[in-house]
Amino acid sequence: MAKRCMVTGKGPMVGHNVSHANNKTKRRFMPNLRTIRVMLEDGTTQKIRVAASTLRTMKKESK
């Protein structure tokens, strides 16, 4: 399963691990995905994977 937010499309980013000796090795920053249930227009529910930052924005917008 892809590590991608179904709402915003946010996915893994790349960067470096940097040691104290300033050695750089590649690493990946994964999005913080959460599974939530969403009610559709026809009354059924569906599970979608959403980034935590997106979920926070969605909760802010619903107030």
Rank of each mutant, 00 (worst) to 15 (best):
S53K: 14
K59C: 02
M13V: 03
K26L: 12
G15P: 02
M13F: 01
R49V: 09
R27M: 09
M39V: 15
R4G: 04
T57C: 01
K24M: 14
I36W: 07
T44A: 05
K3L: 13
G11H: 00
H20M: 08
T57I: 03
R28I: 06
M13R: 03
A52M: 09
R27G: 01
P31D: 06
N22Q: 13
T25L: 09
E61P: 00
K63S: 07
M1N: 12
A52Y: 10
K60S: 05
F29L: 10
V18I: 12
K60R: 04
A51E: 07
R27S: 04
G43R: 00
R56G: 03
H16G: 12
R49W: 11
D42G: 06
R56T: 07
C5R: 02
V18Y: 00
E41C: 11
N23W: 07
I48V: 09
K63Y: 01
D42V: 05
R27P: 00
L33E: 09
K63T: 06
V50T: 03
C5G: 00
S62P: 01
K10I: 08
A21Y: 05
T44N: 06
I48Q: 04
L33T: 05
M13P: 00
P31H: 02
T8G: 06
I48K: 06
M30T: 08
V7H: 09
N22L: 10
C5H: 01
Q46P: 09
A2L: 08
P12L: 10
V18N: 04
K47I: 11
G9N: 00
V50L: 09
S53L: 12
V50Y: 06
R28L: 13
L40C: 13
T45V: 12
M39W: 13
M6S: 12
R56C: 02
G15E: 06
M58Y: 08
N32D: 14
T45M: 11
G11E: 02
E41F: 10
K63W: 00
S62Y: 00
V18C: 04
P12T: 12
R34D: 14
V14T: 15
A2C: 05
S19G: 14
